[in-house]
Amino acid sequence: MKFSSDNSKNKKHTLWHDWLTYDFIVGIALQLLLYFVAMFVWSMRFPKLSFERTPILNVHYLVMFLPFIVGVFGLWARTYELPVWAKFFTKVSLPVLILGVISAVVLCIVPPYCSSTTKTEQYMIVDRDVDAESFDICRHIFPSHISGAPSNTSYRYYKYSSILEDDFHLSLGETLSSEQFKEESDRILALDILKDADLSTSKDITLIDTTLNGDLIVHITLDSAYNRIIYAAGYNRIK
């Protein structure tokens, strides 16, 4: 009995002093880090808006889970004394641990989440890190409120931030009554901020294009055939 107890203690001692066990612990820690960053840090930055995921997130999730998976199966192989599998998981434990750490760092530096909404009730609600001067220009050009019927209105806000780039896009499409269309068209064409904009007209459509505040691209479409106005503005900055 004493020999069996000592052997058990030796196995436990070995179990808690190998790479597989550390992979198991670090794998869990990495996943908790991702959860904290995604669910708490990013959601605090975008408190009122929905998230969108970029496809690469699924790849990062897989890499993040590798240390955890290797740790679990490695401990399973050691527990049931399967030397071939134990040896295999021991060899791959360090590489997948390194990949998991790299993936965690990338997720923190280049977040795979963006802040976005298409809900008209969130019209002109933007994130705190949108360039203030550019957003003031947008508020000056875009209407103060949505006048068109919900069924004929499209709205989109998009914001992505990382240490590498800073993207912002805002667009609104409205179909108005004839009177509303004329009133809003006259307001837009009279804006002093658009006096130097490129203006092109055809039978029913007037296009207004300009760049303001250095890199804020503004595009407006006035469609008199359908009494529809489309506003679009945004910038794409490389840090």
Score class of each variant (00 low, 15 high):
36 F>T: 11
55 P>D: 10
209 D>Q: 00
170 L>R: 01
140 H>C: 07
7 N>F: 11
61 Y>L: 15
183 E>C: 08
180 Q>S: 15
43 S>C: 13
97 L>Q: 01
73 F>V: 04
226 Y>C: 06
126 V>F: 02
135 F>R: 04
225 A>Q: 12
153 T>N: 12
202 S>W: 06
185 S>T: 12
206 T>I: 11
127 D>P: 00
129 D>W: 05
236 N>V: 03
38 A>L: 10
54 T>C: 05
224 S>N: 13
94 L>A: 11
63 V>P: 06
101 V>I: 14
215 D>R: 03
136 D>S: 12
198 D>G: 01
175 T>M: 06
216 L>Q: 04
163 I>V: 15
124 M>A: 09
208 I>N: 01
151 S>C: 05
7 N>L: 15
134 S>T: 02
140 H>A: 10
156 R>Q: 07
108 C>D: 01
189 L>M: 14
145 H>C: 07
163 I>R: 13
114 C>Y: 03
150 P>I: 09
58 N>H: 11
18 D>W: 02
132 A>Y: 00
87 K>Y: 06
170 L>N: 01
2 K>F: 06
36 F>N: 13
204 D>W: 09
131 D>P: 01
156 R>T: 03
92 V>C: 04
107 L>E: 12
12 K>S: 14
87 K>V: 03
168 F>D: 00
175 T>S: 07
124 M>F: 07
217 I>P: 02
137 I>L: 13
116 S>Y: 13
50 S>I: 14
26 V>F: 09
215 D>Q: 02
18 D>T: 11
37 V>R: 10
96 V>I: 07
89 F>E: 03
152 N>C: 05
137 I>D: 00
1 M>G: 10
177 S>D: 11
135 F>K: 01
140 H>Y: 05
42 W>F: 15
31 Q>K: 08
221 T>E: 13
171 S>T: 11
202 S>T: 14
38 A>E: 10
202 S>I: 05
48 K>H: 11
54 T>A: 10
122 Q>C: 05
239 K>V: 07
215 D>F: 02
225 A>L: 15
37 V>Q: 07
125 I>W: 09
170 L>I: 06
90 T>D: 08
204 D>S: 15
99 L>T: 02
52 E>W: 15
204 D>R: 10
214 G>A: 05
54 T>M: 12
234 G>R: 00
71 G>S: 06
189 L>F: 02
177 S>R: 07
161 S>N: 14
172 L>R: 03
90 T>P: 00
235 Y>W: 10
126 V>W: 00
145 H>N: 14
101 V>P: 00
213 N>R: 05
85 W>S: 05
239 K>W: 15
191 L>A: 04
220 I>E: 01
198 D>F: 04
123 Y>A: 08
163 I>G: 04
192 D>K: 12
224 S>Y: 07
132 A>K: 06
198 D>T: 03
161 S>Y: 05
96 V>F: 14
